[in-house]
């Protein structure tokens, strides 16, 4: 149940190939996150799986069955949209019951299921309201409720949290993760927010210009980025990518050091001047202008007191330097 296999999937709009060719296997019960900058084709890929867009070529298998030409209704998937896409003329109860009604379920049984879903999502008190009378977070819960009642083979989430404010986003993030632990159903989640990707995913698929750059667990991507794109995309603040003499010294075209893997030392490091110092309480982010490696970001402890204009020496921690070749790929 819920295994999705993409084979040589290609999608082109006219002359423009949004997705040149993708092969991907999503195992049953996985929480997979598609992440990438805007316009990288991640939403298109999700819509191809959903059936809302037709593939130009290639096949999509769901549960071992070819679903390439099946309409969305026949694929047994549920989707949660960024815009929530609730039916404005129906009450919350009717919204959640809609897929059951479409499936021809007995109304009494459907009502039971709706109540159960409402209980899980804390929507019990709102069942008779219209979507227009709900807050953003509540609407998103209704959208999720509508998706879970029909017990789909897989859930598809298209940037579901991007319309919510920061605090709500964190709590909804946790709710969705818990939901995955409870239901153990395959979930595919699209986001441009790498924090969401890191915190929620079993497996992250990093996409760039319609191509898969790397697939792996969050920590695999963090510790062993396959190329400079993944290295720069995963991690916050971004990894420092350094070219030139220092890289050549290590036999690479580019070297990468994460801000948290740089130590402030008394002597012998890369000397530079602090141009910006951001105190977050727990951490301090320093932007240092060096002569040897250009401007780099350092993550130092919260107690560090460097100010604008101070001179510091920086050294990367042993074994924490990533080396990349001329093609941007990592050296093994």
């Amino acid at each position: 149940m819920g295994k999705i296999v993409l084979k040589s999937v290609r999608k082109a709009f006219g002359e423009v190939a949004v997705i040149p060719k993708i092969d991907l296997t999503i195992d049953n019960g996985d929480f997979v996150v598609f992440v990438g900058p805007s316009g990288c084709g991640k939403s298109t890929l999700l819509r191809l799986i959903a059936g809302l867009e037709d593939t130009t070529s290639g096949t999509i298998e769901i549960d071992g069955m070819d679903a390439t030409d099946l309409p969305p209704a026949k694929r047994g998937l549920a989707m949660v949209f960024q815009s929530y896409a609730l039916y404005p003329h129906m009450s919350v109860r009717k919204n959640i019951a809609f897929p059951l009604k479409m499936a021809g379920m007995d109304p009494a049984q459907a009502a039971q299921k709706v109540d159960a879903a409402a209980k899980v999502l804390n929507l019990g008190a709102y069942l008779d309201r219209r979507p227009g009378q709900l807050s953003g977070g509540q609407r998103q819960r209704v959208a999720i409720g509508r998706a879970i009642v029909r017990e789909p083979k897989a859930f598809l989430f298209d940037e579901p949290l991007s319309n919510l404010d920061a605090a709500l986003r964190v709590s909804m993030r946790q709710e969705i993760t818990e939901l995955h632990h409870t239901l153990k159903t395959t979930m595919i989640y699209v986001t441009h927010d790498q924090v969401e990707a890191m915190t929620m995913a079993d497996k992250i698929v990093v996409l760039n210009a319609g191509n898969i750059e790397q697939v792996g667990s969050p920590l695999e991507l963090y510790n062993h980025p396959a190329n400079t794109f993944v290295a720069g995309f995963i991690g916050s603040p971004k990894m420092n990518l350094i070219e030139g003499a220092e890289a050549t010294k290590l036999g690479a075209t580019t070297i990468g050091v994460r801000p948290e893997h740089l130590n402030v030392v008394s002597a012998g490091g890369w000397a530079g001047v602090v141009v910006l110092s951001e105190h977050l309480g727990s951490d301090t982010y320093l932007k240092v202008e060096t002569d040897v490696v250009g401007t780099i970001t350092v993550r130092a402890g919260g107690e560090v007191t460097f100010k604008h204009g101070d001179t510091v020496q920086l050294a990367p921690q042993a074994g924490k330097v990533h080396r990349f070749g001329a093609d941007g790929r990592v050296f093994p």
Partner: peptide
Amino acid sequence: PVGILEAARMDGA
């Protein structure tokens, strides 16, 4: 919004 129609399609309509 076309998204609502797509939602209906996903809901099996």
